[in-house]
């Protein structure tokens, strides 16, 4: 039976998903072995059933991210943190520790929407629409929120690294990344 895979990008940039496309023609091999459930690759927004493997890109920066991550944990047997943002917060985590800031999140938003010389914002307000997911006080890693089974470092992990990992996970084989595929950048 084909393995079922779900993927999502939380507080990420979709770079890790783009990197998955870098496995090139092996995508065809992959599709022989797996069926994609919820994923931006097929635009399915909800789980249609339990999955074998969940690939999560990005950390958690808002309450929707946390909600989605809990859904992934509940529906996926194996949950994989993909990329530096999922593993340790990545670039979004820079807002957790801003030098001399009493309230880093407020300072970050003020710089982004009000104070910067490069901002044109006629309402002079920070976006606050009820439809926007509520921002968390800090950016959290996946492991801060749920149990993570595996992590693939890299920004993004190369197509080769993702293939190597997926190949082993799908075959249920214990494996490790060779030296040249371990990258934190």
């Amino acid at each position: 039976m084909k393995k079922r895979i779900a993927t999502v990008s939380l507080a990420g940039c979709f770079g890790c998903h783009m990197s998955l496309l870098d496995i090139d023609e092996r995508l065809l091999d992959l599709l022989e072995l797996v069926e994609f459930d919820r994923s931006p690759l097929n635009d399915l927004k909800r789980f249609t059933g339990p999955c074998d493997i969940g690939l999560v890109e990005g950390g958690c920066c808002n309450e929707e991210n946390v909600h989605t991550l809990h859904e992934f944990r509940a529906n996926c047997d194996i949950l994989v943190a993909v990329g530096q943002c999922a593993v340790m917060g990545g670039l979004p985590v820079m807002r957790n520790a801003i030098m001399h800031a009493e309230d880093p999140l407020r300072e970050c938003l003020e710089t982004a929407y009000l104070d910067s010389d490069y901002v044109l914002n006629p309402t002079n307000s920070i976006p606050n629409d009820p439809a926007l997911p509520l921002l968390l006080d800090k950016v959290y890693t996946l492991a801060d929120v749920v149990k993570v089974d595996y992590q693939i470092p890299g920004c993004p992990p190369s197509g080769e690294t993702l293939w190597h990992t997926l190949d082993a996970l799908i075959a249920g084989r214990q494996d490790r990344l060779p030296y040249e595929l371990i990258k934190y950048d």
């Binding site: 089974d149 992590q151 470092p153 490790r176 990344l177 030296y179 371990i182």
Partner: peptide, 9 residues
């Protein structure tokens, strides 16, 4: 970290 193969959670 690379040499020690640190990739695990």
């Amino acid at each position: 970290a690379y040499r020690l193969g640190i990739t695990q959670s």
